[in-house]
Design a protein around this nucleic acid. Structure first.
Lengths: 128, 128
DNA sequence: CCACTTGTTCTACTTCAACTAGAACAATAC
DNA sequence: GTATTGTTCTAGTTGAAGTAGAACAAGTGG
């Protein structure tokens, strides 16, 4: 199981860690029912703080990917998914984006705007 | 021209602004050669600081989307792009992701990892 | 030439998320 | 019971984001 962290990245550590677990689930290197290291252990081996690891674990639980219980630890609860269509579509998208000479930032903006049309946080006044 | 900003969003204001301009270029509401408001004007109408707007403008310039010159302002330098293939591929991807029951976070992680395999900032030690 | 506009480049300050640190506590495993 | 492990606090540091003001340089337009 490869959980890699880049301390110099602009992405928050807990995001990186959660993303790493998600990627592991998708590519099959982490399978359903598998037990992740305890937060304290993982924090030790990745040289992170326990709270940072627990924050990532908490995110994954909210996404339904992880089951957390005291004394036992973190267990993957990811249903089997068929990703062939997703990876194929992603390949097509990246190819099309390259042909259109879209920068990575632009493509990410595009994807983000489709995934999250409006900010979810409380926004009493709305857009200006 | 719609440049909308959500002050409550988790995304930085300058990122939102840059993303809004990118989106405007893509959907045709901002066209090549068009002049954006001066940083001071835009900051006034969006209720932002001048530096925040200039930071967004600077990002867009680095991406080759904007030409900045003193006294004249900000002019779009976006080449015409054919986005039909991109939007079609994006539709397919979102559909496939929904079928596979991937959360938005997971899908974004997936796209990000394909766009940016390794963090670009200086990272003397590499992953741990 | 001259006044004005506008980006460029500084310094300085505030705010807040991210991260670290330590501790006490509660549920679970063995 | 004992050890493990997540849960929940408080508290502190760090750095990016954002604001604020000013001086400056290169254009625009009269």
């Amino acid at each position: 199981m490869f959980l890699s962290i880049h301390p110099q990245s602009s992405q928050p550590l807990y995001e990186q860690l959660a993303g790493s677990v998600r990627a592991g689930i998708l590519d099959g290197s982490i399978s359903d029912g598998e037990r992740l290291p305890s937060a304290r252990d993982l924090a030790g081996s990745l040289d992170l703080n326990v709270h940072t690891v627990l924050r990532a674990y908490g995110m994954l639980r909210e996404e339904g990917l992880l089951d957390l219980r005291r004394g036992r630890g973190a267990v993957i609860t990811a249903p089997a998914r068929d990703l062939d269509a997703v990876t194929a579509a992603l390949d097509t998208l990246l190819d099309a984006a390259e042909r259109a000479q879209l920068s990575p930032e632009t493509l990410l903006s595009l994807v983000r705007s489709r995934l999250n049309p409006v900010p979810t946080r409380l926004d009493p006044e709305g857009p200006r």
